[in-house]
Design a binder for these strands. Structure first.
Length: 514
RNA sequence: GCUCCUGUGGUGUAGUCCGGCUAAGCAUACUGCCCUCUCAAGGCAGUGAUCCCGGGUUCAAAUCCCGGCGGGAGCACCA
């Protein structure tokens, strides 16, 4: 070997080429774009699913899941099933079904089928009966506390030893005699398993709360593990993606399907997506909404889809962003920066340019000789022009005003150059010429006569070190050109030298990003 | 505590399964220049990683093995 290494590389190569050409074939290791290939995926046969519980408003986490589900289906020419996992009436509401669907449509996710797990309850009952009949499950009437204690201590309870007739009778009683909390169906797993999930987990339980769709038709409801496994299998799912915290439940998932002799999808996990200082959990968000610390679930500081839409984040940016995070299990606290960057590149070409002034200071041009000016709405794209009436009185931003000294020459953007003759609370200036000079400061302005007053909502980070940031929403007063009034709500605007904003209402914009 | 997962520049990732083609690619952030009647977008260049640490295997390790350490998750009649 050492001897081989003394031979020049080129010689080694030619030796190999003549003797063992197959060794030189380079393995396919080229850079990929998008998601990594799926194990065991066949072109045209992949079926994925997006299974949210309708228990809240959709957020960036839903977006990640849905986009991954859709992208993989697309990548393999397969299908995407949009399924509401609505098996806990206590948490679910009709408005959430709608909100999630609206969010998904906004994201541009195309699914081939939409369904509710709750529509398959009868079928799930059949599977449960099959389980009970074959002894893979039993009905347990122990208290919550006892069950929890037994699971921790790995000890069986007396219900576990119950025979078929007892279980059959108890199963019947779950639909009538028993009260909520009295009895549950448990999987006969392994009370000594190292995986706590396998220590006889719950499969079905009684919930009397009426279901948003089925009202009081059912009161025995499958829990997540049982419902998902069965649904995925019968829906023909080939690849089921879920977030990492479900990983321990894989054993259960596969075992349920194994015992039921049902087809097994491949389950894969990905990291949860959350932004730093922008929690998605209902536990944290709900009190904020209730206490009025945020204006609602569409408050622009929130990572909900509705909030991001209002703020001016576009779906394409979210998709690019999610894809840039790839499919990994490593914990990510995502960089909002990157999302903003993707967004900026997309909306730049569709954002109308307007002038906005904050902390206004008057600037009077003594020898104004312009009455009207026409300005392009976009530097490159043809987005029309707007007219501005000029009378020599302008507002400029306080920041700009502060830096001006007598004798300075400035350019009022798109208008003319002027020399400052007086500073202070009201600035005075005189026109010098109208040649474009790259070296003088260029500042934006608004005519005093018909300036429009608006509010700019500037969302900041919601939580700093787990603490609610009381200054997370800055509201700035600003003056803009009258043309603003002609724009539709929802319009993306780039206020020159200020940043991108989305028109939220007649007199309010939300600051999207720089 | 137990079990599982995870660890590549400031940040997010590619490469890790099948060790050499790249002493690490891309994006973002930052800096500078060009372009531009914007501090945007676009173009170019640059800063920045001994691939968590320590051993081992090998001619060769981010990639394989062993041992540490850090981070996260689960341990519900929620999903």
């Amino acid at each position: 070997m050492a001897e081989v290494n003394t031979i020049p590389l080129s010689t080694q190569k030619s030796e190999l080429e003549s003797n063992f050409p197959e060794l030189l074939v380079v393995k396919p290791k080229q850079d990929r774009t998008g998601l990594p290939p799926l194990e065991g995926a066949e072109q045209g046969k992949v079926v994925t699913r997006f299974p949210p519980e309708p228990n809240g408003y959709p957020h960036i986490g839903h977006a990640k899941a849905a986009i991954i589900d859709e992208e993989y289906a697309k990548m393999y020419g397969g299908k995407l099933i949009f399924r509401f996992d609505d098996t806990n009436p206590e948490n679910e509401r009709l408005e959430y079904y709608a909100a999630i669907k609206v969010g998904l449509d906004w994201l541009g996710i195309k699914y081939d089928q939409i369904k509710n797990t709750s529509d398959d309850i009868e079928l799930i009952y059949k599977k449960a009966e099959e389980f009970i009949q074959s002894g893979y499950a039993y009905v347990c009437t122990c208290s919550k506390e006892t069950i929890s204690k037994n699971r921790r201590e790995m000890t069986d309870c007396k219900c576990r030893a119950g025979d078929l007739s007892q279980n059959t009778k108890r199963w019947k009683d779950m639909f009538g005699k028993y009260k909520q909390g009295d009895a549950i169906v448990r999987y006969r797993g392994d009370m000594h398993s190292e995986n706590t999930v396998m220590r006889d987990p719950t499969l079905l339980r009684i919930i009397d709360e009426p279901h948003p769709i089925h009202k009081s038709k059912y009161r025995v409801w499958p829990n997540y593990d049982f419902a998902v496994a069965i649904e995925d299998s019968i829906d023909g799912i080939t690849h089921a993606f879920r977030t990492k915290e479900y990983e321990l439940r894989n054993d259960l998932y596969y075992e349920i399907l194994d015992k039921l002799k049902m087809r097994k999808p491949k389950v894969l996990e990905f990291a949860r997506l959350e932004f730093d200082g922008m929690p998605v959990s209902k536990r944290i968000l709900k009190p904020l909404v209730q206490e009025g610390k945020v204006s609602g679930y569409d408050d622009p500081r929130l990572p909900t889809l509705e909030a991001m839409r209002r703020r001016g984040i576009v779906p394409e940016a979210i998709r690019k962003f999610v894809l840039s995070l790839s499919f990994t299990k490593s914990d990510t606290l995502a960089p909002f920066d990157t999302l903003e960057s993707f967004n900026r590149k997309i909306i730049d070409s569709t954002s109308i340019r307007l002038f906005m002034v904050t902390d206004p200071v008057k600037l009077i041009v003594k020898n104004n000789n312009v009455e009207k000016i026409e300005i392009s709405n976009h530097p490159q794209k043809d987005m029309g022009k707007r007219n501005l009436q000029i009378d020599g009185s302008f507002y400029v931003s306080g920041d700009d005003a502060k830096s001006l000294k007598s004798g300075d020459e400035i350019r009022l953007l798109e208008l003319y150059n002027a020399r400052i003759t007086k500073t202070g609370s009201e600035i005075e200036a005189e026109i010098t010429d109208n040649k474009f000079k790259s070296e003088i400061p260029k500042i934006q302005w608004v005519p005093v006569r018909n300036a429009v007053k608006i509010e700019v909502l500037i969302p900041k980070i919601l939580f700093v070190n787990e603490q609610f940031n009381e200054n997370s929403l800055e509201i700035k007063q600003a003056l803009v050109e009258p043309y603003y009034l002609e724009l539709n709500v929802g319009a993306e605007i780039q206020f020159v030298r200020n940043g991108y904003c989305r028109k939220d209402s007649a007199n309010q914009v939300i600051y999207t990003h720089k």
